[in-house]
Design a protein around this nucleic acid. Sequence first.
DNA 1: GGCCAATTGGTTTTT
DNA 2: CCAATTGGCC
Length: 794
Amino acid sequence: MTNAHPSEIDDFDAWESRPLSERARPQPPYLPGLNEAQREAVELLDGPVLVLAGAGTGKTRVLTTRLAHLINQQRAFPSQILAVTFTNKAAREMKERVAQLLGNAVEGMPWLGTFHSICVKILRRHAELVELKPNFTILDSDDQLRLIRQLLDAEGVDDKRWPARMFAAQLDRWKNRAQGPGQVPADETGFGEGRGVEFYRMYQERLRTLNAVDFGDLLLHVVTIFQHHPDVLADYQRRFRYILVDEYQDTNVAQYLWLRLLAAQHRNICCVGDDDQSIYGWRGAEVGNILRFERDFPSAQVIRLEQNYRSTPHILAAASGVIAANRERLGKTLWTDADAGERVRLIGHWDGEEEARWIGEEIEALARGTRGHDALSLDEIAILVRASFQMRAFEDRFLAIGLPYRVIGGPRFYERMEIRDAMAYFRIVVSPDDGLAFERIVNTPKRGLGDKAIQRLNQLARERGTNLLEAARIAAGGGEGITRKGASALGQLVGQIDRWAEMLRGTEVSHVELAEIILDESGYTAMWQADRSAEAPGRLENLKELVQALEEFENLQGFLEHVSLVMDNERDDAGAKVSIMTLHGAKGLEFPAVFLPGWEDGLFPSQRSMDENGVKGLEEERRLAYVGLTRARRHLTISFAANRHIYGRWQSSLPSRFIDELPPETVEVLTPPGLYGGGYGAAAAQEMTGSTLERAAAEASTYNSPGWKRMAERRASAGAGQGRGAHSPVVNATASARFETGTRVFHQKFGYGRITGIEGDKLSIAFEKAGEKKVVASYVTPAENQGGSEDIPF
DNA sequence: GGCCAATTGGTTTTT
DNA sequence: CCAATTGGCC
């Protein structure tokens, strides 16, 4: 079974038989400059190697240099190296940097990519082995959930008792462990009164009918093929002479099996990772994979990268102090020869709003350079939170003071409704079997075909053993239990799809033009043009962007595959801005100044993690703390609030237990000692009551640290009225007095608009760009004075 | 079949 | 508090 690239293999054999002297290479220019451990990690090319790369130790550099070295030393053709990453971003970066190292001497590496993209490539070649057609579609989790809903509904499962989401999660767990319906452990079939495996089978069957796979299938199917078809496996084993894996601590069982199968012949597998940065256990990652590496690959060499080039000793000490409390770890000691730098700052606040206000002011100080350092660009500052709801407090505050920020990891472009709709139109034109796509668009725009009609179509498709599109064609003829109006609408739609499919095959129009025609003729664009809601203009804008994005692809098919695998959302909006993101989102990044707010027990570590996963959960939270701490280069500030406004109710909490784990000598405490009983952290605060907290806060101005003084001054100057936040009655009164209906105003986020109504502290404003919105009065300034209430010098 | 009001539940996220 | 989804009503 030599299905793939025989020419490449022949080339290699020819090359391998050449005398050694011809293969010799001069000392490569990229080796000097690496430290000893890094160099070892680059040069140990043969056999299994585990590189334990602590945060900031030059992991990416090692990985890319090793790749370049393999090619430079002619150990293998680029096409014989398998290099896997988790994200497209990482893959892209690696490609670029290898090309840079080798001076563009290498034509692309076909097997450098994410687990999923590489699996797609393999699976398309052998699709028939798992009863798929090579042009199968890849469903995202949204489609997946809809399919599950349909299935469970058809089986009469009560969604209240057995929610579709729950089954989706279960499916994920199974697929993450590469367990097909036949390999599900007996004690995990409980879903739907013991019908879990039955549903799993049916779900897989439906996917097959749709000629579709979900994300989990990409790995599961390939592993299944490898296990059942030794000839196919042998082919790939032979091809991949060298294997490199990034972020090994994040691999799940399926990925692990996949790697082990592929590495079995040459055994040249190099995994790079950091067990201390494993933070994706909740989505199937197995820290165990990295902890067990030496057992899995006997004679493996383990290299530790421990010299940190990113952070100051104080920051490293803080991170080490926290992570040392974890039991399950391989153990590394980061060190640096950088200057001590300033200590990690720790500060407690009365509530979340005060925390946001304080951080806002600190950021302004950093940006002005008034903290005794060179001024920082806002791009060099980040706020890392545990959960995204924490972001709002910062957004609110920064909007109010006009501090530019960017939220990283919001809703992705390709996840927007209008984009998914448009894509569904493209999908049904490209692949007539894609019933989910058809279902999505059949009544968008409204064609009078609701749930009833769709149910009937599905039934019809089942009866006739055909796909939804064909069923619709039949139903359009009438007499199939669809109303006359519905049948005629169906007939029109099917006719349109046929015509578009015809155009797709022909050469008359380009795929970009076709896309425009589809969106136009279907009435989809018109639907949004007719929509008077605030979002409509933005959606039309997005559709334009979508069509524009198409231009970079050869055809619709290629584009669709790109989108299903590369859900990137890198919008590079210009201007220096503070980054606000989750700790998860910050992995792999670094910033000169980092703020870590919300270090309260229950929030961080998250109560839910601890409740659901006990010590394991707590340890993962602790690794998350470690990731957060090690993002900082020079300035690091941890903070917590005694009270927080969560989901509309006040909640008070104790400082995070992780705070107790910070080595005291690396920390500068800005919180008055009274506020949390002298020491800091949960243990010290255990016995504090609300009233003692209040009294301590009142005594705060007597505290003597410079940081605290600064804060006290600020607090005093802020004035008592605003001390409890921008939403206080005082502010409201001023605000409503300042505005009246019809006033033209400016809002930091939504731009210009006219006030259409006032309710208490909230204004209804018809924005010129963003449409009608309700906005808190204090975030809006009269249009004549758009500079805002404070002058910010940037 | 479509629209509005009430209800509910709300870490972390890539592919 | 707020969004997303569901249930009831036209």
